[in-house]
Write a protein that binds this DNA or RNA. Structure first.
Lengths: 304, 304
DNA sequence: GTGAAAGCGCTAACAA
DNA sequence: TTGTTAGCGCTTTCAC
């Protein structure tokens, strides 16, 4: 039971492969009588023809593949994983709906290998949570032309678009809720600059901010500052914090698309799907080569 | 700045493309002197050569692509999404480490289109949470030869391997913990047979089992049966249940790889990464055409 | 209206 | 030891 190719159809329908191609792709500048057209389409269906996209890409120089490349480190907490995975899931949905296929690949954050972009001739690429120092190497190695959007990373390169949460805005809103001074628990991004930014925006001393690595470390931090209100980024971390902190003392900036995991008394500031949506629309613009693309290379997504 | 091809290397190194191919692929039955070898490798590096995997697949008839196809319905809860995404993430890691590339695609559960398998010539396919009635159509449309593993689905077709949790075992363990009679909260799988199996294994009446659709429905169910101990499948649902039920009255069968989300007093039965691991190893066996593959088409994964 | 043929980048059998 | 060449399945120009 071999795969049927255009050649098979051509033979069966008594036409040339060229004609088959014309019909099956609805080529506009060719005028083909309805009966040949029908005959070809019928035999194609009968033979269960499905085009080989790799062969097509080879000549078209477009693969219809979108890459999502995620930097990962050993022993990531599930909170990190899940917020990344939510993003991936949303992006995948958008692109699948547009007829693209999505290639997912994790990168070693300390030694990312982005050959996949060239090997698979990806039409567009998302790069998630890159270390600034690694990005230098990446952008060097990177032959321009392929639309590349960097997510969750503050990097020095002015060449590429960067989609990030507007943490400044979110934190400002969060701080307003409890007028007293707060403590912060945030995610351990690979992109150190993101952490630094958040620290600056928080406006509190370094020892009032905990970068979440594991539950024990968190508990130690919370014990050092009892009875304080806490602002948490990522509701999965929030859920863990709520085991140890009075939920009503908690404000959570939701980045993992599951605010319902939190206790009812906890205040939420929700980003929902805004980041993936922004990244998707930007990518579609880049793919279509539009020229009305944003001037600012940083797209800052505001909470709802 | 065009992509370099083997032709470019051949020209630059004064050899034929064949020789370049031999050297770059370490073809064993060809004996090439070290200096030509070096010359070729050097120019390849200098020109920043990266092979085009699509072109290679075309002739090799192997793409190095693994498909993960996930059935999805509108408005899935995040608990469903996240347990699927954990699985996907783990599979992706395994295969990326083996040098495969992973294509992720969501399917409309009520009308799954699996053309992607043929279009992209996937070397192997995982199909997650399929409806039994849809599988008929899928397997018809499916030209044999491609290793296909079905996950989280009880389906009638004896042809394909099916990796599922051993819910019977897990539930037996869970029930033992609270000797009193329990109530159950379980996930709303697309595969109705999975739900039915779980109901049978639970050994309780239908109205003691709640299939989680949304939080309000859950709350209604829990209010109908106050002060009972509850067995939950999926720790993210467990975390939601723990808002309304005394955590020590709770036993959670963990399928989403984040048991730490649960209150400390809650009992856990954890599947960890055993499902993805089993699925991965099975796929590797199928890919290598080994003949010592399991006889039983159902792989039942037991909790740790 | 239709088809022959070149070629996308690569591999592998066969010559030389 | 190296090169020539025929494809893999498809698109597309150009001739008929």
């Amino acid at each position: 039971m071999k795969k049927t190719t255009m050649k098979d159809i051509a033979k069966a329908a008594n036409v040339s492969v060229a004609t088959v191609s014309y019909v099956l792709n609805n080529v506009s500048n060719q005028t083909i009588p309805d009966d040949t057209k029908c005959r070809i389409i019928e035999t194609a269906n009968k033979l269960n023809y499905i085009p080989d996209l790799a062969a097509r890409s080879l000549v078209k120089q477009k693969t219809g593949l979108i890459g999502i490349l995620v930097n990962r480190t050993e022993n990531e907490g599930f909170w990190r994983r899940h917020s990344n995975l939510e993003l991936i899931d949303q992006l995948e949905n958008y692109f699948t709906n547009k007829g693209y296929h999505v290639v997912l690949s994790s990168l070693d954050a300390t030694n990312p290998n982005i050959n996949i972009i060239a090997e698979r001739k990806l039409d567009g690429v998302f790069l998630i949570d890159v270390k600034n120092e690694q990005f230098h190497r990446i952008s060097n190695q990177f032959k321009a032309g392929v639309p590349l959007i960097v997510i969750d990373s503050f990097i020095d390169d002015p060449l590429f678009y960067k989609v990030v949460y507007d943490y400044e805005d979110a934190i400002t809103k969060a701080v307003k809720i409890h007028s007293q001074d707060c403590h912060f628990v945030i995610e351990a991004f690979n992109n150190q600059e993101t952490i630094e930014k958040i620290k600056v925006f928080s406006g509190v001393a370094d020892n009032s901010i905990h970068v979440m690595e594991h539950e024990q470390g968190l508990v130690r931090f919370l014990n050092q500052h009892p009875n304080k209100s806490v602002i948490v980024i990522n509701e999965l971390i929030g859920a863990i914090v709520s085991k140890y902190v009075n939920p009503s003392q908690l404000v959570v900036i939701c980045t993992a698309n599951c605010p319902a995991i939190l206790p009812v008394q906890t205040t939420r500031i929700d980003f929902g799907e805004l980041k993936s949506s922004a990244a998707f629309h930007l990518m579609m613009q880049l793919l279509s080569g539009q020229r009305d693309i944003p001037h600012d290379k940083y797209i800052r997504v505001k909470a709802e």
